[in-house]
Write a protein that binds this DNA or RNA. Sequence first.
DNA 1: TTATATACATAAGAAACTGAGGTATATTTT
DNA 2: AAAATATACCTCAGTTTCTTATGTATATAA
Lengths: 115, 115
Amino acid sequence: MSSNALIKGSLQTIILKLLEENEKMYGYEITQKVKELTAGEIKITEGALYPALHKLEAEGLLTTEIQQVDNRVRKYYSLTKDGQKEVSSKLAELQSFVESMQRIINPGLKPEFSL
Amino acid sequence: MSSNALIKGSLQTIILKLLEENEKMYGYEITQKVKELTAGEIKITEGALYPALHKLEAEGLLTTEIQQVDNRVRKYYSLTKDGQKEVSSKLAELQSFVESMQRIINPGLKPEFSL
DNA sequence: TTATATACATAAGAAACTGAGGTATATTTT
DNA sequence: AAAATATACCTCAGTTTCTTATGTATATAA
């Protein structure tokens, strides 16, 4: 379900950020939301997503809640308090990384035009 | 020599971009240049850099040239023609990825303010 | 009825790192 | 003079994170 080799390491940040905005989401919903937000550019594979969700849960950043919808099971994930703290830190990290990349890739760029 | 988990996958792009601008660089020089450009934010480890350089060379994107400087050996890398083509494509990919990440992380952002 | 969409999951293998270790010379600090 | 740091290359075991394939199951669209 993917095509971008650059996602490495940022999947966790994506998940945490989406859950900060949406309170409660299930796996499939996350893949669709990312596809929608990026106009199909980034496609989260299930093989990457589910292990990532399980890991975040094991680390205590997410909690789960099973719901039955039309005979189908949905596993909703939401942020714990630790998860809420982690979002800001992960976002700051990503922000800083993107700024650094801009300085490498766009070395002539003036500071006031950077991210 | 590092701290950022997000570099995964973008190291090749960094190397290619630096060589597009500098004609000819050696490994150690690349680590220092990245450190300098990013104010120490991104530190390329040697364990990541040298295998990456060897791989790019094996793929025909880089060529090497040994030079002796003060009894010390330097291995200079420069872009081949294939390498020059690859830079643009890799940069476009990164650009697109960063834009996608912005749409996820900063969903309220107006298009005219995006990268 | 067959394919696609929804919804979860695991597992083998690949790729890209980290961190530690190794070799060697030059310079700076104590 | 000795020790530490800087310069300069390299490899390799182990870890993390992905891809791709596979499996299960229900609902809907072709």
